[in-house]
Design a protein around this nucleic acid. Structure first.
Lengths: 354, 354
DNA sequence: CTGAAAGCGCTTACAG
DNA sequence: CTGAAAGCGCTTACAG
């Protein structure tokens, strides 16, 4: 008994009856609206507490015709990588789920290779007077100034995929980059002897800004240092993302060495795998990131040994739901929600969700 | 335009207006209730189709006071293993989420070591006239006859954790046992040379029925056979779950061999790890199952190398939500929903969700 | 076989 | 500062 039997019937009506006021007044204090005398406000609040009143969300959404506008700012899916298709799917899924609850989602896309497109879209959002923003802060400086305008407009915002320092964001949802690098190193450890050579590969047009890649590299190196492993670790930054460029860079990097394992710090690992396959290089283990079609193909064939994946779909989904739950239910949110660090192999990729 | 602009306003009222009937009549055909002439029924249905009417679920649940009763039948959490606490958490989480939508969940527990307790509880459910059942069919025969009574009473049921052949279940939600054994073998492969010896350990009071353990073993062996690896594979079935019994069994099993890796087919892997630790045996790799406190402790210390986990919380959660979505929204369900096969290590366990 | 009316628990003008 | 009333889109008796 107790728990089960009590709550049942408590609604605004009951509260109004007990407080000897109208339900409209109860509604006012429920929503912290002005225009209620301190005295009656206090009385009503006491009753709300006492009864542990929980509003009926169904009725709330039904009665209120207010629609909630959420803006999303993420990279455009490019032909170079369809990684961003995944978060977008999660966002769309959330959208479908809450559409009937009066939520509208407005999507803005920018080009990963074009900072100005980011600024442009960000400005559109800033002017749109929406109720909340989901943001992938790929360009640090530009993101910071966008965030400033969000703050000044009192728009809550959620960051996904990569975090940015100094932030008043509602929360960050995404990987712990350092930890994922560390794990990659641990897996590497299984594949190597103490003397095998390792190559770390960062592939990105804008490596300076891509703290993510560098933080993964740090985590990776840390593992070897903590475990006092003697393996030589080389590294290369590849600043053009075309296959031809990756190929020639890799040729140079492998030259005159005896690399046994390559750690690619992002989803571009398929370029490296393609290179190894085309040039008929065998006996090198490969670890990279993300559950993308190309990557999975190489995983199946055994050219890639491990992929680390961090639920990009769920990042998008959770991002939207967090905004929704915060705005509609005033739900408290964790400041940081690190995604699980999933290990994908030939044997379990079929069962990977997200 | 198009998609966005159209639907907005279509409700029972509009349908009623167009069909020249009352909304009560519209409601009748919406719910396939009797008492409507074929003629008006056809007219209304045509309009519903034409308008692509989607009922407002909020209003539906709000107006209808009908409560949905779901029954859950799972093992009691024992002091021997708290595995079943996880699915229970997922069930409770789902319960909280949909409680305000008029769903009541009734939990029945049985003792894993006592078949009769299963039958007892199953009978209670069969008599309870609930609207749907979530079931962990640990005892095959008893489950089959319970399922028969569900079918005869037209109660939909969902299976979790382990599947049972011949089934008209709404769906199965749980691991692909064979595949998880296969993956375990793949991971083992990384840790071994071609000549290292392997020991498979099944720990359970009722191994005959526990097809799950045996199917994992099969998957495990299959990997070595497919990949033509020459490792000797030994096995032992331990039919008492107390630590003392496990310990002495393990002592025997290791005697006179040079085992380099132990594969424990379920969550009892911590007993084996404890044994290795207490008897100061080093240099044996260990792979087992499930994200349990004890197991994680040994993972941290390095006694256990890999844990394979299959989101038990989510199994419970999805089980309930599947019943709910099926009963409330008539949502179609996949017959089989295999959980991802997660690999847990020292480095990523902190980020594991579920 | 069909419809008018009340009600689910809340919000929103509107009037005072 | 406060309340009476209409309405959100649907369901449920009840009456015919």
């Amino acid at each position: 008994m107790g728990k089960d039997s009590e709550k049942e019937l408590v609604g605004v009506k009951e509260i109004a009856r007990r407080a000897n006021v109208s339900i409209a007044t109860v509604d006012r204090v429920l929503h912290h609206r002005s225009g209620v005398s301190e005295k009656t406000k206090a009385k009503i609040q006491a009753i709300i507490e006492e009864l542990d009143y929980k509003p009926n969300i169904l009725a709330r959404r039904l009665a209120s015709k207010k629609v909630l506008h959420l803006a999303v700012l993420i990279p455009l899916v490019s032909q170079e990588t369809d990684y961003w298709n995944a978060p977008l799917m999660g966002i769309t899924q959330a959208e479908e789920e809450i559409a009937s609850y009066g939520v509208k989602i407005h999507k803005y896309f920018f080009d990963l290779n074009d900072r100005s497109s980011f600024v442009e879209q960000a400005n559109l959002i800033a002017d749109s007077q929406c109720d909340g923003v989901l943001l992938a802060p790929m360009f640090i400086e530009e993101s910071k100034s966008f965030i400033q305008s969000c703050i000044s407009k009192d728009m809550p915002y959620v960051l996904i995929n990569s975090d940015i320092p100094e932030q008043n964001s509602l929360c960050y949802i995404g990987p712990n980059l350092y930890a994922s690098g560390y794990l990659a190193a641990h897996l590497s450890g299984f594949l190597l002897t103490e003397t095998d050579q390792i190559l770390i590969v960062n592939i990105s047009k804008e490596i300076d800004n891509h703290h993510h890649l560098l933080r993964k590299e740090e985590g990776f190196r840390e593992y070897f240092s903590v475990n006092k492993r003697a393996n030589d670790i080389f590294k290369i930054d590849i600043r053009q993302t075309t296959y031809e460029y990756v190929k020639s860079s890799m040729q140079n990097a492998l030259d005159n060495k005896n690399i046994k394992l390559i750690f690619v710090t992002n989803s571009r690992v398929s370029s490296v795998a393609r290179f190894l396959e085309e040039t008929n290089i065998h006996g090198i283990k490969v670890i990279g990131f993300d559950f993308l079609k190309d990557n999975i193909e190489f995983l199946k064939k055994g050219t890639i040994d491990f992929l680390i994946c961090q639920k990009p779909i769920e990042q998008g989904y959770k991002g939207i739901m967090t905004l929704y739950n915060h705005l509609v239910f005033s739900q408290e949110v964790e400041k940081v929600y690190h995604m699980p660090i999933d290990i994908i192999t030939k044997e379990n990729y079929l069962y990977y969700r997200n």
